[in-house]
Write a protein that binds this DNA or RNA. Sequence first.
RNA 1: CGGGGCGUGGCGCAGUUUGGCUAGCGCGCCUGCCUUGGGAGCAGGAGGCCGGAGGUUCAAAUCCUCUCGCCCCGACCA
Length: 568
Amino acid sequence: MRMSQLYSPTLREVPAEAEIVSHQLMLRAGMLRRSAAGIYTYLPLGLRVIRKVEEIIREEMNAIDGQEVLLPIIQPAELWHETGRWADYGDEMFRLVDRNNREFCLGPTHEEIITALIRSEVRSYRQLPLRLYQIQNRYRDEIRPRFGLMRGREFIMKDMYSFDRDEEGLDQSYWAAYHAYERIFKRCGVLARPVEADSGAIGGDITHEFMVLADSGEDLVLYCPDCDYAANVEKAECRPIESQAKDSALFKPVEEIHTPGSSTIEQITEFLKVKPEDCIKTLIYTADDKPIAALVRGDHTLNEIKLQKVLGCETLELADDETIHKLTGAPVGFAGPIGLDIPLYADYSITNMINAVVGGNKQDTHLVNANLGRDFTVTQTADLREGEPGDPCPRCEGHLVGARGIEVGQVFKLGTKYSSALNASFLDESGKECPIIMGCYGIGVGRTVAAVIEQNHDKDGICWPMSIAPYHVIIVPVSIKDQEQASVANAIYNKLEDAGVEVVLDDRNERPGVKFKDADLIGFPIRVTIGPKSLKQGKVEITMRRTKEQIALPVDDVVDHVVKLVKS
RNA sequence: CGGGGCGUGGCGCAGUUUGGCUAGCGCGCCUGCCUUGGGAGCAGGAGGCCGGAGGUUCAAAUCCUCUCGCCCCGACCA
């Protein structure tokens, strides 16, 4: 490809719309343009990278016996009604009607459609296991699209679905996908760490997310430097605290304190000159329409996912002001466990607290010296708080470290959630009808590209890994008007093309600085510079984008050397 | 959806508070000359109904009303 012909409009300045570096660089390098919020056009360079990532994914999916299919973007409402997700998905689903008023959606995911396909075709255990995957556009009307390809409303995703006859089969499928993912991200040149996660709305029990550690990541990951434990904060376990025999001699009498206007932990610690870890936060929730209270230490954050699991409820939300007032007799901010007549769920960390500060269930009132056992009891003690950096590792003696992560992939064991709802079953050897056991495995293709850039860039632009670079090499003649430079450049260009190297010749009549800047910005891993300085000695220069390492080689040796670099 | 902010040539911005504009600047773009090892220089030029619709006024980018779009902060997810 000749640079003069390549449609890759580079920008000198950073467009105002872009916040994070991957987004900025994709716009500046002429890979991407926005069409609407969260909806993008891929320009030639951007598309080439996307296609390369897809190809790596394809190879690894095929290697674990995945078979590629292409499921429809437009999906009929009926299927979604069968699983109940037509209602559950809410505003996040793009919905449309056809001329006959039939309802459809733009697929946000494809569990329904693939299970429907399978149920009519798979009847016997002989047809299992089966692993099908696709690489397809996905549509989610995100509340807040942002960060370019990181969180779009239209995005490309690879998803694989596995169908097995039993748990062992699912286990094999799951770990096959898990290990394939490790290979995929490694080949893409990005460090992705598998972490334990919550399965959220998709359902199922075991799940791992693949996180690319980057400051721009939207998730918080906790991991242990001493063992291989790593988890999303939403999942990270906190160790139970052994209940110690407390010396009741230390218990001081409960005392009521007037705390006007101090309704937050911050205000109370300020007002009473106590530490947050000496306070107990009492949070009133409505769980399946019934009120409950959750107690966590003042310096901790409640993890609603954990609470919901402990309660086993369908819905969980903070109670509204009116409900709180009715239950506690006080406005929001003064709830406490003493005398509160609803089920109380306490985090482990509450167990050994002595002489704690709690809300007084009365306006502008707190109680000090509250003690579990003496002054109040709880319905259940459990792991309810959000883990944080510095916590003891739940698996070893180490301590957790926090980092931000970009979720580029996730693997789920779905079990029979969809196969039961959609009646996808098979007959086993004994003729018994059994639901198919499913798993699903997603990779955000565009997000992976963005993550690669987040991890591979410098002040001048992108430093593509060879495996997914839009082109391997750019040839830059310092002056294309110089006959000798032009003919050497052309000769090398033709030979590299013949050798199967993906190469761009910068044939523009620009000053060298412009060409170097563009080459760095776009991020070609290898630059071949043809200029008068070296050419006098019959040499040209090869510069590695990432390391800036430069060598001069005789013109005749260049092609072989570059081919070697590309293949390595 | 709540909170904050922004819409002015392709990109980045000024001008809006205090109406007076024939709308300006840098980059990019076009022509020519010149230059060619890290975003050159000179000269000439093209390109904008100031997001849209109403209104106020002798006069609106500027004031008022209504809309649409976009960005950022929170709750969702690959």
